[in-house]
Simulated scan of single mutants.
Amino acid sequence: MRKPLVIGDLTAKIPVIQGGMGVGISLSGLAGSVAACGGVGVISTAQIGWREPDFGKRPFEANYRAIEKEIRKAREIAKGGIIGVNIMVATQRYEEYVKTAVKAGVDLIISGAGLPIDLPKYVEGTKTKIAPIVSSLKSLNVICRMWDRKYKKAPDLVVIEGPKAGGHLGFSREELDTFTDESYDKVILSIIEKVKEYGETCSKKIPVVVAGGIYDRAHMDHALSLGADGVQMGTRFVTTKECDAAPEYKEAYLNAQKEDICIVQSPVGMPGRAIKNPFMDRVKTEKCRIEHCYHCIVTCKPAEIPYCITQALVNAAKGRVEDALLFCGSNAYRSHEIETVEEIMEELS
Rank of each mutant, 00 (worst) to 15 (best):
D9W: 03
T11K: 14
P15Q: 08
V16R: 00
V16K: 01
I17L: 14
I17S: 04
Q18F: 07
G24V: 05
S26H: 07
G29F: 02
A31V: 04
S33L: 03
A35V: 03
A36I: 03
S44R: 05
T45N: 05
I48K: 01
D54C: 09
G56I: 07
F60C: 02
A62S: 15
A62P: 11
R65F: 09
E68L: 04
E68F: 04
K69G: 00
G80W: 05
I83E: 00
G84S: 06
V85S: 02
I87Y: 00
Y94C: 03
A104L: 10
G105P: 00
I109A: 06
A113R: 00
P116Y: 07
I117K: 09
K127V: 10
K138M: 10
S139E: 14
W147M: 11
K152Y: 11
K152F: 11
D156T: 10
L157M: 11
I160F: 04
E161R: 05
P163G: 01
A165N: 04
A165Q: 06
G166S: 08
H168L: 10
R173G: 03
D177Y: 10
F179T: 06
E182A: 15
S183T: 15
D185R: 13
L189K: 15
L189M: 11
K194L: 06
V195E: 02
K196P: 00
C202N: 05
C202I: 12
K205I: 10
K205Q: 13
K205Y: 14
V209C: 12
H222W: 13
A223D: 08
G230S: 08
Q232A: 13
V238L: 14
K241G: 02
K241H: 06
Y253D: 01
D260L: 12
C262M: 14
C262A: 13
Q265G: 14
Q265P: 02
K276L: 13
D281E: 15
H292S: 10
H295K: 15
C296I: 11
A303Y: 07
I309T: 09
Q311E: 15
V314K: 03
N315F: 04
K318N: 09
G329H: 05
E343P: 00
M345W: 03
E346M: 12
L348I: 14
